[in-house]
């Protein structure tokens, strides 16, 4: 799928909030996505986009950026999170950046894809460990926020709902007694 077209389609869906960038990887520190409440600089914006792409990378199927899921994440946090949620998101974003800096001596955006994936996997692993004191940290909260919205955006995207699963707008039927075996065969 042509990435530009995908993003343009996404932008159409998202309406006015997403101003189409000529290049999403504008590294000059200027934000390219127009948001109402969140104040992100270009660096931070790229971090969120890169994290979304790390969570849902382009493989032999489209990734977060291909599908405009990163834009959706911005939109959801900007529109649907309340002030408290947005404050937590911003604080978490900063802490997330600091943790990466401390660990790697460079920013998340400067990490290789493999390093980003390793870092994300670490957070996933740590969050599952009941003895881990850091699992409630702001950086971890930020990670799960981005992941939650990425997964929500992806699993409710046209791509996922038409090509990965079958969503029926008009089922036309209700079978109250349906054998599981038959379902599995479908």
């Amino acid at each position: 799928m042509n990435r530009r077209i995908a993003i343009r389609n996404m932008a159409l869906i998202l309406g006015s909030a997403a101003v189409l960038p000529s290049c999403l990887h504008d590294n000059k520190g200027k934000p390219v996505v127009e948001l109402k409440y969140l104040k992100l600089n270009g660096e931070q914006e790229n971090l969120v986009s890169n994290l979304a792409e790390t969570i849902l990378p382009k493989t032999n199927t489209p990734g977060a950026k291909d599908l405009g899921i990163n834009l959706f994440v911005f939109k959801m946090i900007d529109d649907c999170f309340d002030q408290k949620g947005q404050d937590e998101f911003m604080a978490g974003l900063k802490e997330f950046g600091d943790v990466v800096d401390k660990k790697y001596g460079k920013s998340f955006n400067e990490l290789t894809a493999a390093e980003r994936t390793a870092f994300a996997n670490d957070i996933e692993k740590q969050s599952k460990d009941p003895n881990n004191k850091d699992k409630d940290a702001k950086a971890t909260g930020f990670y799960w926020t981005v992941k939650g919205q990425t997964v929500f955006g992806y699993t409710t995207s046209k791509y996922f709902m038409t090509e990965q699963i079958i969503y029926e707008l008009v089922p036309g039927r209700y079978n109250a007694m349906f054998p599981v075996k038959k379902k599995a065969a479908v």
Binding site: I13, D79, G153, M161, L169
Partner: peptide, 16 residues
Amino acid sequence: NMYPWEFAHHGQVTAE
């Protein structure tokens, strides 16, 4: 006749 992805917030209500 809208699909979930056709809603700006995929069905969610904005904070505002």
